[in-house]
Amino acid sequence: MHTRSLRSLVKVSQVDSFTEAAEQLGMTLSALSMQMKSLENVLGAELFDRSVRPPRLTPIGRAIVKEAIPMLRHEEKLSEICRPSGDLAGNFRLGFVTTAAVRLLPMFLRSANKKMPRAVFEFETGLSANLEQKVLSGLLDAAVITDANGLPNQLSSQVLRQEPFVFAAHENLLEKGLNNLLSEGVFFHFMPDTGIGKLIARVMLDFERPAHSKTVVLDNLEAIMECVSAGLGFTMLPAPDVERYRVSGVEAIDAQASLQRELVLVMLRESILVRHRTDLATLLGS
């Protein structure tokens, strides 16, 4: 049994699609299907339930994926040991919290090809909690997330940047001052169950808004800033996010809070990436 088939199986489990997995692996769909059938024959077990579309992993298939991930990671370690140059080489999957990907991913892509030419990176975006769990389970090699509640001991981390929170509101709504806006204005809150959202909720508790005040929860930073630009209310977000979407007439005001958003690069402590953590952080603008 070749590890290439196991890598393909893990890829299918990551993207939950034979078609997308084939594209990312540089294979035809028929070739990938044949590879998976061959792997099932070698193992003597059905890894996929093909009675549904798209096919999904069987319980045995999920168990094989779970065991394959650390085995493939050890294979990468052996390859790393044999490289006299010490350069990072191989295929790696990185996650980015969605709100930071728009700023950090282009920076990473510009530099990675030049400074780590032997490494191939694949990417996905998502919420911090989901990305953290994928790193812990081995579905991601590393991720950039918002650290809101502390990190598990299994993870090695490096702070990339700390970003202060600011209020954002149209100047027309600020004519009576920020305190009046805090009491009477509509607050656009970014997803309270996310890393950023939890920090925002923590900061907003200090301002003790009246019970009758209105809060609108949205899951998109651009949508929030569009509502703010239209003078419909105010928000609190990390300063770089406000600056990215701020238009003429919208003011950013220091939240005067000690809490900051902390973006961190995380990976398993036994990952081969730990040796290159500082280099990766540099590529991300740390």
Rank of each mutant, 00 (worst) to 15 (best):
I200L: 02
K77D: 10
T125C: 10
G126V: 03
M225C: 10
E243P: 13
L109C: 11
E67M: 10
I145Q: 07
V186L: 03
R4I: 14
E76D: 14
L182G: 05
A22L: 00
R261W: 10
S33C: 08
N153S: 15
F18T: 04
K115T: 15
R73S: 12
I60M: 12
E76H: 08
N153M: 13
V144G: 04
R246Q: 14
L139E: 15
A211M: 13
N220L: 09
F165G: 03
E243A: 14
K134V: 09
A89E: 12
M267A: 09
G138Q: 01
S248L: 10
L25E: 00
A31R: 11
R50E: 04
G233Q: 03
E222D: 10
L283P: 08
Q162D: 09
D49R: 00
V144P: 00
E222G: 01
E75I: 06
T19C: 03
P55C: 06
I224Y: 02
A223G: 13
L78R: 11
L221Y: 10
I64V: 00
T58F: 03
F48L: 02
D193P: 12
T146M: 10
K114I: 15
N172G: 08
D141G: 04
S13E: 05
L29T: 14
S17Q: 02
G86C: 08
I253Q: 08
L109E: 14
I224A: 02
A252T: 03
M204E: 00
G86N: 05
A63E: 09
A257P: 01
F190K: 07
Q158A: 12
E171N: 06
R73H: 12
L6I: 05
G44K: 11
E251P: 06
G44N: 09
G44T: 03
K134P: 05
V15S: 02
